[in-house]
Design a protein around this nucleic acid. Structure first.
Length: 272
DNA sequence: AAGTGGACCTGCTAGC
DNA sequence: TGCTAGCAGGTCCACT
C-alpha cells in the first residue's frame, strides 16, 4: 500500500497534532515484523516530537529517543481522541494526552521499533543503504545514470530496490517509467544519460502529483484522519491491463518482474 | 557482488 | 452457495 506519497500524506495528517503530546500508555496487539525492542511503559511520561519521514519510514521522536514506524503493505495510521475500541488488526496504540495514535495493519508486514535515536541501531541499520530522497537536490539525471551503470536488472526492479532513490514502489515505479517512455524491462545499465535525466524528472513528477492527490487508495489507504487518496483516478498504467493507453490507445499490458506485476504501454514505452 | 526466489500474513475476488 | 487459487501498496534473507 504505502509508498512515499501515502507515508508523507499520513505524516502530515498527524504530525502537528501529536507534536508536544505526552505519552500516557502504549499497547501492542499481535506481533508485527519486528519486536518493539523496549518495555511497553518505557516511553510513558515523555513528549512526542515532530514526526519525520525517511523513504517509507516514519520517525516519531519521543523524549530523547523515538519510534520508527513502517506501514508495510497494508498498514495505516489513525490519530484522534475518539477512535473507538481497538479492532483485531490494530496492533500498536500510543495513547497520549492529545489523542490516540493507532496502527491498523491486517497483514502485519509493518513495524514499530524503538530506538535511542535515528543514528543508533536498530534504526540506523534499517535506514542504512537507503538511496536519496527523490526531492533531494542531489537526485539528478546524472546521479541516476551513474548509479544505474553496470546493473543488468530491469530498470523497474532497480527502482524498487530503493538503494538509488527511495519512495517509488510498485505503483509509482510503473507510472514514472510510463511518463519517461521507458520500457520496464530495459536493462538498468543501458538507460542513456538523456533518458535517465527524463526518468529522474518523471519520478519526482509522479510522486509530487500523488502527494497532491492525497496518495493512492486502491483498497483501504486512509490518512490519519480517515481521508482516502485519489491518485488511482489519474494512474496511466497501474492496474489498467487491457484498457486503452490514455496517450495512444494501445492496450495496456501486464508482465511479472521479480514476482510483482508491472503495467506498461507497449507503444509509448520503448527499450531505447 | 549482483541477481533470484522464498518468506512473512491476511483478506479479497474471480472462477469453477 | 461454497471452495480454491491467485493476487495485493514492502522488504529482508538465504542462496547461486
Amino acid at each position: 500500500m504505502p509508498e512515499l506519497p501515502e507515508v508523507e500524506v499520513t505524516r502530515r495528517s498527524f504530525a502537528d497534532a501529536i507534536h508536544g503530546a505526552t505519552v500516557l500508555a502504549l499497547r501492542l496487539g499481535k506481533p508485527l515484523r519486528w519486536p518493539l525492542g523496549c518495555a511497553v511503559d518505557h516511553l510513558v511520561g515523555r513528549r512526542a516530537g515532530l514526526a519525520q519521514r525517511r523513504g517509507k519510514y516514519l520517525w516519531l521522536p519521543v523524549g530523547e529517543e523515538g519510534l520508527l514506524l513502517h506501514l508495510g503493505m497494508s498498514g495505516s495510521l489513525a490519530f484522534g481522541r475518539d477512535l473507538g475500541p481497538a479492532g483485531p488488526h490494530d496492533h500498536f496504540e500510543l495513547q497520549t494526552d492529545r489523542g490516540l495514535l493507532r496502527l491498523h495493519d491486517p497483514r502485519r508486514f509493518g513495524a514499530v521499533v524503538w530506538s535511542t535515536g535515528l543514528d543508533a541501531p536498530p534504526v540506523s541499520t534499517l535506514l542504512a543503504g537507503l538511496g536519496l530522497e527523490p526531492f533531494d537536490a542531489r537526485f539528478t539525471g546524472t546521479y541516476l545514470h551513474e548509479r544505474l551503470r553496470g546493473r543488468r536488472v530491469a530498470i523497474k526492479q532497480a527502482l524498487l530496490v530503493g538503494d538509488i532513490v527511495v519512495g517509488a514502489g510498485n505503483i509509482y515505479a510503473c507510472e514514472a517509467l510510463f511518463l519517461a517512455g521507458i520500457h520496464p524491462a530495459s536493462p538498468a545499465g543501458r538507460i542513456s544519460r538523456p533518458r535517465a535525466e527524463r526518468l529522474a524528472g518523471s519520478i519526482r513528477q509522479v510522486l509530487a502529483q500523488a502527494l497532491e492527490a492525497g496518495g493512492t487508495t486502491l483498497r483501504d489507504f486512509k490518512d490519519a484522519h480517515g481521508v482516502a487518496g485519489s491518485f488511482q483516478m489519474q494512474a496511466q498504467v497501474y492496474g489498467r491491463e487491457g484498457q486503452d493507453c490514455r496517450h495512444c490507445g494501445t492496450a495496456i499490458r501486464r508482465l511479472v518482474q521479480g514476482q510483482r506485476s508491472t503495467f506498461f504501454c507497449p507503444r509509448c514505452q520503448t527499450r531505447s
